[in-house]
Nucleic acid binder design. Sequence first.
DNA 1: CCAAGGCCGGTTTTT
DNA 2: CCGGCCTTGG
Length: 788
Amino acid sequence: MERFNPGEMPTGLPLTPSDEAPASAGSPPQYLEGLNARQLEAVEALDGPVLVLAGAGTGKTKTLTTRIAHILCSARAWPSQILAVTFTNKAANEMRERVNQISTLQVDSLPWLGTFHSISAKILRRHAELAGRNQNFTILDTDDQVRLLKQLVKAEGIDEKRWPARQLAAVIDRWKNQCWLPSDVPAKASGAFDGKAVGLYRQYQERLETLNSVDFGDLILLVVELLRSNEELLADYQRRFRYILVDEYQDINTAQYLWLRLFAQGQSNICCVGDEDQSIYGWRGADVGNILGFEQSFPEARVVRLEQNYRSTSHILSAASALIGNNEGRLGKTLWTDVPGGEKVRLIGHWDGAAEARWISGEIEALAYGTGRRRKYELGDIAVLVRASFLMRELEDCFLSIGLPYRVIGGPRFYERKEIRDALAYFRLAVSGADDLAFTRIVNVPKRGVGEKALVSIHDCARNSGLTMFEAAKVLLRNNEFSGRTAIGLNKFVANVERWSAVLNSGEGDHVELAGRIIDEAGLVQMWMNTKTPEAEGRVENLKELVKSLEKFNNLQGFLEHVALVFENLEDSVGEKVSIMTLHAAKGLEFPVVFLPAWEEGVFPSKRSLDEMPLRGLEEERRLAYVGITRAMEICTVSCAATRMSYGGWSSQVPSRFIDELPNSETQTLSPPGLMGGFSQGEGRLGGHDISNASFSGHSTSNTYSAPGYRRMVQRSRELTAGSGRSIRQESIGAKTEFAGGDRVFHRKFGYGVVQNREGERLEIEFKCSGTKRIMSRFVTAADGTES
DNA sequence: CCAAGGCCGGTTTTT
DNA sequence: CCGGCCTTGG
């Protein structure tokens, strides 16, 4: 159907193309069936601002996509008149797919459905000259950003150690999230970097402009600036975007809010969907205040609450609701389900992280491979969600050792890997010799004798004569400025790049083949094959993968334009596997079975976020806990350990306050065989929960628990940790002895030893069996000399 | 110019 | 305990 062609619509078209309305009048359209009353309300409230507060598992995406379908099917707007914004490409793709599924009209494309960043890039490319760029500007990622800043910091003669470029990048990023250009940075905020940050920010922006580049923050910021200073343009976009939809509204930052508001001031048909209880990105600039203040920002806004949950059992829901009820800054929702019953949230304490991992692996095996009624789950139905990625290690170690197939979601991104970035830099330089950042990155990768000194002289030459670094290198070569090895290496490099770029410009030959040749001739493959580290093989594989992925594009340029913004992580979905990921990565997902380990003070809630902002930090951590629990459909297990190894040391852990906040009525406390929670919780309680009936699964995890030696160790540890308090609100009142050198001590894991040295709380102890370790004094007790 | 060893520091992560 | 980054010695 021609009318749904995504092509550009002329501006100033009739407001309502209703004369061409599809035959949708009469009985309610089929796509509205199956929506509940609230969802229907959210779909049909098309005029004016709408805030949809969509709790976890309440059909948020369904509502959003149906709303788009409804706008289209009722002929309120053309596809090109709908602005639909998400945060991730994944969400955008899913939405596009589901609109197509719902709509029988086969909308092949909604041109303005995408992430904040990709839509901004699209707008910016059209009007690049107004932002001091040309249409082919490149988008720098964090790595490029830091490299560039490092150069500037160095040039300013600032101590790089005291003010690392990373930190400066973070400051600038924060300012951009606030929508502040250098001139907008308020005096009271400009103290960073000894007050030099604003100046560096200004230089950085100038540098970006001359490089014809923007960073991620600029995409939003520059679009706002563009529209603010061009009334015509703004009016044009406001007329175009008749309906605006925003996903995950709780995660937007100030710049994104201003961005949205500019577009929305036209028609005000803006519909934002979000859940303030799932706002977990405050640390990177997201401001919950935006969703809390929606009704002030958009007066007359209609608020629709989606509270019927279709995901979790009632116990899981109630536990999550009770937990999040402890937060102050809420608009308030009460999730409910009409499906009764289900398993209570399971709580269990362990001796240490390894025991916790072992227990989880045993449970997973029972659920997936076990016999009897419990065997109703596939590995793919099960997820382990952790607060921070360092917690994955112990799990992985354990899963590996028992051969339990798992997959880690959200590791390092494909295009952030060194080998990929190097290859991309070669492509960039071949496409544009002016890409100085690419040049600096790879001129000596692999090593070809072009070191710091050579680079500086190339840089100076380029600066002094206004050349690109690539040109400058050629000039210096011609003038014989370099000695033997450097000259040979650089000459070959220059010749290679020129040859590739000639092939590229001739327009002949296959770009996939060229890419392969570049990687090969540059010596990247050779470089990695010569490396003997275990991951080298994988890197060569990744390079092959990169070349293969080029097949989906028409040319190198097109590929590079997309690579910064939309490069999917290739997920290995081969076979059934348990998923391990961070809580952040789990947002938006659901699993029948969820394990939530390491709920311990300091880990979760994380000490650092509490230190940074005690109140806001705690609330965000609590929302993270809420996100975790609400991922579970049927079985949710929260666990903690009494001891955890980190940074090579051991530390004694206290159960998270969030465990206390789960009501007794919705939880059951399990105990691992032969061990009462690892902690000695006074009268057998875990975070205030009675330890009631034993493990649900009936399978016995491991016999090691009942081995006599193990039992003795547990017994011993119980005595030693007795009185360590059942809640963090109660400080440890355990025997706090001051130790001195020469004292004989006992440690639960390492056994008997002698104190060598003391620095405050830190003891250096030489253990009889385990060598010398550094231990906090509270983890050891005085040994009475009765060791056997 | 570069490879090997010491030292410091170390959440969460998308675009 | 690990990895990144800087210093040192070839």
